[in-house]
C-alpha cells in the first residue's frame, strides 16, 4: 500500500491525495484506543465524566483522529517516506462522527539531497466542520 510507487516527478503543487473516509467513530473504538494508546482520560470512555466536563457524553481522542491522518498519508506514500506530521486539533469528535481526511501537495523542494514534498491536510466531520488542520513532509524517490 503506497510505499515506493509514488515518485517525486509524479506529483505537482496542487496534486490531490486520495481522500480517506473512515467508518463512524464508535464507543467500542474509543475503549480500544484508550487501551492501545494508554490514554485513560475518562473523558473518552465514561459518559458521566464527559457530561460533567460539558460535552454531553464521551469525546474521541484527538490522537485517534491524528491516527486517521497518519493512515491517510501512509496509504499514499508508506511509513518510511514520512519526515514530519503536524496537526492542530480544531474541534472535538464524538461517537457516530464520520471523519474524512483530504489533502494536497503545497510545495516541492530538495533538502539534504532528498526530494521533499510538503502537504496540507484537513480532517472534517460529516457536518463539514474541520476537526484537524495539519501538514506533512514526505521524502519521495
Amino acid at each position: 500500500m503506497g510505499k515506493n510507487d509514488i515518485f517525486f516527478n509524479d506529483v505537482e503543487v496542487g496534486y490531490k491525495i486520495k481522500d480517506l473516509i473512515k467508518s463512524p467513530i464508535n464507543e467500542t473504538q474509543l475503549v480500544m484506543y484508550a487501551g492501545a494508546s494508554g490514554d485513560f482520560n475518562p473523558i473518552h470512555t465514561v459518559h458521566a465524566f464527559g457530561k460533567k466536563a460539558g460535552f454531553g457524553g464521551v469525546i474521541g481522542h484527538g490522537m485517534l483522529t491524528m491516527g486517521f491522518v497518519g493512515q491517510f498519508i501512509t496509504n499514499w506514500v508508506g511509513v518510511k517516506s514520512l519526515k514530519k506530521l503536524a496537526v492542530q486539533f480544531k474541534a472535538i469528535t464524538k461517537p457516530k462522527d464520520v471523519i474524512t481526511v483530504s489533502g494536497e501537495v503545497t510545495k516541492k523542494y530538495s533538502f539534504e539531497e532528498e526530494n521533499r514534498v510538503d502537504c496540507e491536510i484537513i480532517a472534517k466531520n460529516q457536518n463539514n466542520e474541520i476537526v484537524i488542520a495539519g501538514s506533512a513532509t514526505v521524502a519521495l524517490p
Binding site: 481522542h61 484527538g62 518510511k80 514530519k84 506530521l85 503536524a86 492542530q88 486539533f89
Partner: peptide
C-alpha cells in the same frame, strides 16, 4: 483531567 484537551501534536521522524 476534565479541563484538559489536546491542542496540537507534531512528530519529526529521523530514523526507523
Amino acid at each position: 483531567m476534565a479541563k484538559l484537551l489536546h491542542g496540537g501534536q507534531e512528530y519529526q521522524y529521523f530514523a526507523e
